[in-house]
Design a protein around this nucleic acid. Structure first.
Length: 410
DNA sequence: TTTCAGTCAATATA
DNA sequence: TATATTGACTGAAA
């Protein structure tokens, strides 16, 4: 069902009324906004790297899954929302003048907030492509720029220093996440058959911690032994790869994080085992380990990192990554150009298909194949997500059906 | 004080 | 209209 959250247009078309969107699901079940849900589903992190807070959404998902009437309730919510909306709409149209509007609904969004938007929100900053490129180049040279460097960059780009600072923070953080996925992929690829025993996974997890990837960039390391440079170099790969792996992580999370998870595995990484991922490998592509080999080789066999390799693009991106950043050819581009479209993983997670619930869930997380035509990157990304989500869902359901372990470990 | 994780929310894209 | 992206913010940890 999670996969269906990434609903595709097609899915929506097929089940316009039964689709559970990210917004509804996020706001009512997870307590997150749509954007957060999207991000969560698209770029899940390994369970072991999630903080307590980061695990919460997955716990909620599990709880929700354990609720026999979960979908029904959600659908009811949706209906109520719709009603409220219609009501509001009606009243606002018909009596736009006598607005003693009831605004009764649970309308959180634009609820007739009596508050005139005084606080003039400052407009969102949108960096121009050139600015982003410049920042990326700067990042590759120095992932942790000094205040002085930041100042210079801000001046040169005519941006606020806070914007530059934020950009670096966000970029590092996002690259890191991409790396997780990449590592997983690399691991799964190189490990192909290696055992996925829990112990193995956990050990992996141990080293896999962030910065170890490796090809150190020149960058001065982060201040206190924090992860540094490697990410930069891998960014391209990371992004590219991102498509394949994310799901797994989430999934594993699902399994372990969930209440029903086997206690014995709780401490392990959240990622799924290679098994499911392997499927994605379909088309036999991209099994090649990503260039960032160090990580891959080192961790090979680490199930933890296994991802659906969808990263087919790996090759391209990899090579691209090697090109000098200074040239302006950011690996970034490679990522986009490298995408391919592969068959979409089927969202089979809902075994009890046929039921309304199954459909709803499905639609909730399914993603469109139609989209594939455009940006390959998107399609592969979606594929990964779908695979990811499917796995998560599958695991969550599995966990949910398990009676044992009811205690969660946080 | 800095970095990071997590998230929001505006807005871009499909 | 739903999902994806991303700049900014918050709180915690080091």
């Amino acid at each position: 069902w999670l996969t269906s959250l990434k609903s595709s247009r097609r899915a929506r078309k097929c089940a316009p009324n039964s689709a559970l969107g990210q917004r509804l699901f996020g706001e009512t079940i997870l307590g997150l906004t749509q954007g957060s849900v999207s991000d969560l589903l698209a770029r899940p992190k390994p369970w072991h790297k999630l903080s307590l807070k980061g695990r919460e959404p997955f716990v909620r998902m599990q709880l929700w899954l354990n609720d026999p009437n979960n979908v029904e309730k959600l659908m009811d919510m949706k209906r109520m929302e719709k009603k409220a909306y219609m009501k509001r709409r009606h009243s606002s149209v018909s009596d736009s003048q006598s607005c003693e509007s009831s605004s009764a609904g649970i309308d959180y969004s634009q609820g007739a907030s009596p508050q005139p938007q005084h606080q003039l929100k400052k407009p969102r900053v949108v960096l121009a492509p050139e600015e982003k490129e410049a920042l990326k180049r700067a990042y590759q040279q120095k992932p942790y720029p000094s205040p002085k460097t930041i100042e210079e960059l801000a001046t040169q780009l005519n941006l606020k220093t806070s914007t530059v600072i934020n950009w670096f923070h966000n970029y590092r953080s996002r690259i890191r996440r991409e790396l997780f996925i990449e590592e997983i992929q690399a691991g799964s690829q190189s490990q192909a058959g290696s055992s996925d025993s829990p112990s193995a996974r956990s050990s992996r997890a141990a080293h896999s911690s962030e910065g170890d990837s490796c090809d150190g960039v020149d960058a001065e390391g982060p201040p206190e032994g924090k992860p540094s440079g490697p990410e930069a170099d891998e960014y391209s790969n990371a992004t590219t790869k991102s498509q394949g792996g994310q799901a797994e992580s989430a999934l594993e999370a699902g399994e372990e994080a969930l209440p029903g998870a086997r206690p014995s595995e709780r401490a392990e990484p959240f990622l799924l085992g290679a098994e499911s991922l392997e499927d994605t490998d379909d088309e036999g592509r991209l099994k090649a380990p990503r260039q960032s080999s160090p990580a891959g080789s080192q961790r090979s066999g680490e199930a933890l990192e296994t991802l659906p390799n969808s990263a087919t693009e790996g090759d391209a991106s990899t090579s691209a990554a090697s090109t000098s950043v200074l040239t302006g050819e950011s690996s970034y581009k490679s990522k986009e150009s490298s995408e391919k479209i592969s068959s979409v993983p089927s969202t089979s997670s809902t075994p009890a298909a046929g039921s309304q619930k199954a459909n709803s869930l499905q639609s909730l997380f399914s993603f469109s194949e139609a989209a594939s035509s455009r940006n390959t990157r998107d399609s592969s990304l979606r594929k990964k997500k779908a695979a990811n989500l499917n796995n998560i869902i599958h695991r969550l359901e599995k966990a949910a059906s398990r009676e044992e372990a009811v205690e969660w470990e946080f």
